[in-house]
């Protein structure tokens, strides 16, 4: 590796590991995290989302199996599963639904006041809410891993696509890390949960598809190439083929840190304004 790559790597570790470690060490942060997780799990929305994701994952998995059974082509099961339409359908809905209530609800019913006048730091509140959603997001994907494990157990073709599967789940985690921070931001911007959800949805959708959309529009070549580089759909392809690309790691993790920082500033600003 070159020197600059080392520097980037160190910076990356710094912006991701530091807040995480800080958070895990903060007592109040963990208390709020527990409470947030509880209120996610006690709400019907969580269970609707979990069943929706399981159902659609089941569809895409079965569909992928069917394709492989009928055709003799050189593609992996993982590749088919994670590029099917029903799989991406779930993806768009998860983030707005799990993040919309984070701050919008607290602002709406006023509990943000009791929360922030307790001896807690705003940054603890933000990180607790962020990590609670991230944890729920991870829980959400666990059943889908079981699909693959069950298949491999029954077919005795162990670990044939382990790289591809690892790549697929890495990108899912990475997108979760990034898009949940977007959800935090939109929820902190408004008192209205619906507005927060729609803003998050719009952003996730655009970010995902921007490369596709621009292909047919009369925009300068430079723009098109630039935006194609940030469009999620291309990243997914790379990762599903089993390649964990460090450029994407840098892109998502650094932007997550930036967006969480902006969210923090907005929360503080709302205090000055309120």
């Amino acid at each position: 590796m070159e020197r600059s790559q080392y520097i980037i790597l160190i910076l990356l570790i710094f912006i991701t590991v530091t807040p995480t470690v800080y958070f895990l060490l903060s007592r109040t942060g963990v208390i709020i995290l527990k409470k947030e997780l509880k209120s996610i799990i006690y709400s019907p929305i969580a269970w609707i989302i979990i069943s929706l994701v399981m159902l659609l994952n089941g569809f895409s998995f079965t569909a992928a199996l069917e394709i492989l059974r009928k055709n003799d082509i050189d593609e992996t099961l993982v590749g088919y599963t994670f590029s099917s339409t029903s799989f991406w359908l779930t993806y768009f809905f998860i983030f707005p639904v799990i993040t919309m209530r984070l701050f919008a609800e607290e602002h709406k019913i006023g509990t943000i006041e009791t929360l922030l006048t307790a001896p807690v730091k705003t940054i603890d509140v933000l990180l607790a809410k962020y990590f609670s959603c991230l944890l729920f997001y991870i829980i959400l994907w666990i059943p889908s891993v079981l699909n693959f494990i069950l298949l491999w157990l029954s077919s005795k073709e162990n670990g044939s696509a382990i790289g591809s599967l690892g790549g697929a789940y890495s990108i899912i985690l990475l997108l979760g890390i990034f898009n949940i921070s977007i959800g935090c931001l939109t929820s902190a911007l408004t008192k209205n949960q619906l507005v927060a959800a729609m803003a998050c949805f719009t952003f996730c959708m655009l970010h995902f598809l921007i490369g596709f959309i621009l292909q047919d529009l009369p925009v300068p070549e430079l723009w098109r190439n630039g935006l194609f580089y940030v469009s999620t759909v291309n990243h997914v392809e790379v990762f599903i083929n089993g390649l964990i690309d460090s450029r994407q790691l840098v892109y998502y993790l650094s932007f997550t840190a930036l967006i969480l920082l902006i969210t923090y500033k907005i929360l503080e600003f709302r205090k000055w304004k309120a």
Partner: peptide, 29 residues
Amino acid sequence: KQKIGYMPENVPLYDDMRVREYLLFRAEL
């Protein structure tokens, strides 16, 4: 803040919690 017990106007509370649960959360916090 440690020295203040504050009850805001209109008493905002989390509706999805039980009383004991809420007080436990606040006490820990």
